[in-house]
Write a protein that binds this DNA or RNA. Structure first.
Lengths: 205, 205
DNA sequence: CAATCAATCTTGACACTGTCAAAATGCTGG
DNA sequence: CCAGCATTTTGACAGTGTCAAGATTGATTG
């Protein structure tokens, strides 16, 4: 019998309550604390006070769980993007904000970022349908924005896909060098990306 | 008793011969075939027909072995760089060659590249002294080249370190997006980096 | 040449991992 | 109250890195 009986927690009614969400939350917390590689399903189960294999009713696999976390990460990123786009700013400001946002998100959620864009999931080609879909949507959105910024003469180049790949590459590269510990001082990330900005902009008249 | 007695192989004289080199070579072959994450010391030992723990006489650790592979990778990269620098070309051509070389090296040795610059080693801060040294030398060389290219007005910017960080970031990012399987068509890597080139160059008069 | 030594390699063991099959538990509708 | 079903647990297995202790073997020295 669990301690949380009767009417203590509103969402705890069935066996555990909603184990899936609890597992996801705990897993996120654990990877944030100790990194992806030191997350084990058994330690996770321990932390949630549940049996070793309980998670297998909600996730096919360890990989499946990681994909779910990555998907959540994409949702979080999309929401942040949407908020930022609604701000009343010049396009130039929006573009800069996009770059900085990307960097801040990546360095503040390094483990989620790794799951979203790292080898762990994509390399092994074991990517959930859900993740595939939401990730592709995000990529497409990037390309669309780039196309627009090029069309109004803000960003260099005339091939949106190609330009998006390069600019994204730059952001991704700098982010990963920080996240993976090759560059050490996280706080410089924003500074660096800002000094990269002029390379992407069409020179003013 | 081993089968390779008498004078069959020239390098097989002691117990095994030179197990260290054999292990390194076999390990490189295995990660090239199946990726870093599916390399196990036991399978490696099997492949070399040696006991599970034999490797521990030459490497402290699995991590230590991976560091050794990474170090070899840096030596290979440095050699490639040196060769390329001796070619008789304009500085502009050398710069372009540098970018393309980086990309080709990364995409042709993806697993070694991951060990050299990836989270696997750097994130966990378990980096050999040897690796630390040779890696730092490579970074410094990059910065020095960038300083020179800026001084002759070839490359944009006037802060060599900052510029090196950004350009390296771009290369690294694009390389990793390919290596990790986010971008799929490896053959486009060179094309992409070439179209990024103009962003780094000072416009001609 | 023979005995000792140190380098090299193997065996045994342990804790930890992901994952499957089968059993047990507890809620819910009839 | 009971059957059925969703949910969770127990048992088991193969695989992993790594340590301690023993076995092998080439080299060294009296």
């Amino acid at each position: 019998m669990k301690a949380s009986s009767s009417t203590s927690k509103p969402s705890a009614k069935y066996h555990h309550g909603n184990l899936r969400q609890t597992l996801l939350a705990a897993a996120k917390q654990m990877i944030a604390a100790d990194g992806i590689e030191s997350l084990s399903l058994r330690k996770l189960a321990d932390k949630v006070s549940v049996s070793r294999t309980a998670a297998y009713h909600y996730f096919d696999d360890k990989n499946d769980l990681l994909c779910a976390i990555a998907s959540d990460g994409f949702r979080q990123w999309q929401q942040l993007l949407k908020q930022s786009e609604q701000q009343n700013q010049t396009e130039r400001q929006k573009f800069e904000k996009y770059l900085v946002n990307y960097m801040v998100f990546a360095t503040h959620h390094p483990e989620e970022y790794e799951l979203m864009f790292g080898r762990c999931i994509w390399k092994q080609a074991k990517c959930t349908e859900e993740l595939q879909t939401i990730a592709h949507g995000t990529f497409q959105h990037q390309v669309d924005m780039m196309a627009y910024w090029q069309s109004i003469g803000l960003v260099v180049g005339n091939n949106p896909l190609r330009t998006a790949q390069i600019i994204w590459g730059t952001l991704h590269g700098i982010a990963k060098l920080f996240i993976d510990g090759v560059y050490v001082d996280d706080t410089r990330a924003e500074e660096i990306v800002k000094s990269a900005l002029p390379m992407f902009l069409v020179p003013k008249d």
